[in-house]
Amino acid sequence: MKKDSNKGFVLVETLIVTAFVAGVLVFLYIQFNNLSRNYYESYKYNTVTGLYSLIDIEEFFELDINLPLILDEVNKNRYADITDCSLLNNNEYCKKLLELENISHLYVTTNNVSGIDLSVDDDFSKFISKINETGTQKYRIIASFKNGEYATIRIGENYE
């Protein structure tokens, strides 16, 4: 007489459990992947040398006679692209300074950068999206460097 065994798992049960466990693991893996990627990216933001480079840039801006024109442009369009130094009076010096500071893109913007479309690459956009508006200064310098780093400082304590 044949006896049926009731022990063991049905195939469907096994598949359901496997799919559930695999789903949980994939979710955890994605979360930790994002975590580690954000961790490594954060080392490229507002580095020591980047911040001091922008302080040098600000020091130079304050002496340029075209600074009011640049600030007018920022007040109108919320940003001014300084990368090619054409807006500055002392543009040869500006180009040399940007070259020595290893800067690839440089912008002067309003302190609040939300909603500004700077037409930059994804990594730069990601950095800009993390900038919070704090402080009483009206303006901000944002730069990307040739080594993949980014930095920003607030400026404009003495500006009208």
Partner: peptide, 17 residues
């Protein structure tokens, strides 16, 4: 030392790097 020709006598024209 770096030197550039400057349009503005009152602004910077040199750097010590």
């Amino acid at each position: 030392k770096e030197y550039t020709l400057s349009n503005d006598l009152n602004s910077y024209d040199s750097m010590l790097v």
